[in-house]
Design a protein around this nucleic acid. Structure first.
Length: 389
DNA sequence: AATCCGGGGAG
DNA sequence: CTCCCAGGATT
C-alpha cells in the first residue's frame, strides 16, 4: 500500500454515508479543454519531460521515502511546510524514531510532541499534527483518510499538503501547489502577478490540474518539488540544462528574472520635504548646494526643509522678502529605493539675499536658461521645468 | 485580503 | 542586512 509503484486502484472507500462527491469522472479532460492557448501538445509533454528529468536527477534518498508510508509522508509534508529539506531531515529521523506510527503519535503526551518539534519553528504545526492524529484514531480507524476533503478537514492540512499526501502515499492523481510549483508554473506559462494573489493562485491550480500525468503520480509530485528546488531555483535557475527550455515562456521572453512576480513590498515610508522656489526681480532662481553626504550629495538643488517653520526661519536669515507671500504649488512625489518623498514646493519672490550672506558659496542665482546645464535632482528639474512652461 | 507563525539559508 | 522557503489558520 505504501509502494510508490503501486498502480492506482479504486479509491472509493468504505464509509459512504455521505452522497457521492460531485467530481465528474473525467475532470482532467474537461479542465484541459477549458485551458486556452499555450499549445496542448507541448503542455501535455511537460509531465513526461519532467519525469524523465526526475529519473536522472531526482532525489531518491530522502528519509521519508524509505519506507514511504502515509504516516511518514504526512509527517514529512508538515515538517517541510516553510522549512527546507536540509533542516527537516534530522528532525524527521528523531521524530520517527520516538513516534514511529500514527498510533504512537495519537497517544503521546503533547509535551513530548512539542519537544520533538523544538527548534523547527511554527509550533502550531506540531499541535495540529498531534490533534489530527487523535482525530484519525477516533474517526478513521487510526489511519489517514484517503480522501481529499477528509484530509483537508484535518488541522494543519491544506489543499496542497493533502495533494502531496494523496499522490505520494497512494499514487492518487492530486495536484500540489507549493512554492516550488508556483515558481515553475509562473515561469513556464508566463503567469504575471504575485502567486499569492487569489486570482493568480486559482489559475495556477487550474494549470497544475491539467499537467497531471496518467501514471507515476507519486513520482510526479516529487519531480516537481525536486525540479523547483534544484534546477528551477529562485535565483540563478539552470536554464541551460533545463528540459523545458524550449517551451518556457519566461525563458523565451527573457523574463526569468521577473517571474514569478515578487510579493508587493510594504508601503515605503513616506517623508515630506518643503522646497523653496525663490525668484529675484530678474526672474532668476536661487539654488542650494546639498551636503556632500546623503541623497543627492553635492548636487545643486532647491533650498529644502522639513516643514514650514524651519523654512521660514531659514528664509528670514538668508533672504530679503515677505515669507507670508509664498505660494504653495502642487506637490510632487518622488520614489527612492527605501522611501517615498513628497515634495511640497513654495514659490516666493524676493529682492535678493541679505547683505551678510550674499557670497555664500552654497547658494547661487541661476537664469532659467542655465538650468538645463546644471546637475539637478530629477524631481527638482521637473519642478522647475513645469514652472517655466 | 492581511497577518501571524519562526528558524535557517542564500544572496 | 533582506528576502524567501515542501502553508495553513485566524481575523
Amino acid at each position: 500500500m505504501n509502494n510508490r509503484k503501486t498502480p492506482r486502484t479504486s479509491r472509493r472507500h468504505e464509509h459512504s454515508e455521505e452522497p457521492a462527491l460531485p467530481l465528474p469522472e473525467k475532470p482532467r479532460k474537461q479542465v484541459l479543454h477549458r485551458a486556452q492557448g499555450d499549445g496542448e501538445s507541448a503542455r501535455r509533454d511537460i509531465a513526461g519531460r519532467l519525469l524523465a528529468w526526475f529519473d536522472r536527477h531526482g532525489r531518491f534518498d530522502l528519509p521519508w521515502q524509505h519506507p514511504r508510508t502515509p504516516y511518514r509522508v504526512w509527517l514529512s509534508e508538515i515538517m517541510l511546510q516553510q522549512t527546507q529539506v536540509s533542516v527537516v531531515t534530522g528532525y524527521f529521523d528523531r521524530f520517527i524514531k520516538a513516534l514511529p506510527d500514527l498510533s504512537a503519535l495519537a497517544h503521546a503526551p503533547q509535551d513530548d510532541v512539542l519537544a520533538l518539534w523544538s527548534g523547527l519553528g511554527y509550533y502550531a504545526r506540531a499541535r495540529n499534527l498531534h490533534a489530527a492524529a487523535k482525530l484519525c484514531a477516533e474517526h478513521h480507524d487510526g489511519d489517514l483518510p484517503r480522501d481529499l476533503d477528509a484530509l483537508v478537514a484535518l488541522p494543519g492540512i491544506g489543499r496542497s499538503t493533502a495533494g502531496a499526501i494523496l499522490s505520494q502515499a497512494w499514487g492518487d492523481p492530486a495536484p500540489i501547489l507549493d512554492g516550488n510549483v508556483k515558481r515553475v508554473l509562473c515561469r513556464v506559462f508566463g503567469i504575471d502577478g504575485w502567486p499569492g494573489m487569489p486570482v493568480v493562485e486559482k489559475r495556477l491550480w487550474s494549470i497544475a490540474e491539467t499537467l497531471l500525468p496518467q501514471t507515476r503520480l507519486a513520482d510526479w509530485t516529487q519531480a516537481q518539488m525536486d525540479f523547483g528546488a534544484t534546477l528551477c531555483t529562485r535565483a540563478n535557475p539552470a536554464c541551460a540544462i533545463c528540459p523545458l527550455q524550449d517551451v518556457c515562456v519566461a525563458r523565451i521572453e527573457g523574463r526569468i528574472g521577473e517571474l514569478p512576480a515578487p510579493k508587493p513590498g510594504k508601503a515605503l515610508p513616506q517623508r515630506e520635504a518643503l522646497m523653496l522656489i525663490v525668484e529675484d526681480a530678474d526672474g532668476r532662481v536661487l539654488l542650494w548646494r546639498r551636503p556632500p553626504t546623503g541623497v543627492w550629495a553635492s548636487l545643486w538643488s532647491l533650498p529644502q526643509h522639513e516643514d514650514i517653520i524651519e523654512a521660514q526661519a531659514w528664509f528670514e536669515r538668508h533672504l530679503d522678502g515677505d515669507f507670508a507671500a509664498a505660494r504653495a504649488l502642487p506637490a510632487l512625489d518622488h520614489g527612492f529605493s527605501h522611501y517615498r518623498l513628497r515634495i511640497q514646493p513654495h514659490l516666493i519672490a524676493v529682492n535678493g539675499p541679505r547683505a551678510a550672506i550674499g557670497d555664500n558659496p552654497d547658494l547661487r542665482w541661476v537664469d532659467r536658461a542655465e538650468l538645463t546645464a546644471i546637475g539637478l535632482p530629477a524631481p527638482v528639474r521637473k519642478l522647475l521645468q513645469e514652472l517655466t512652461e
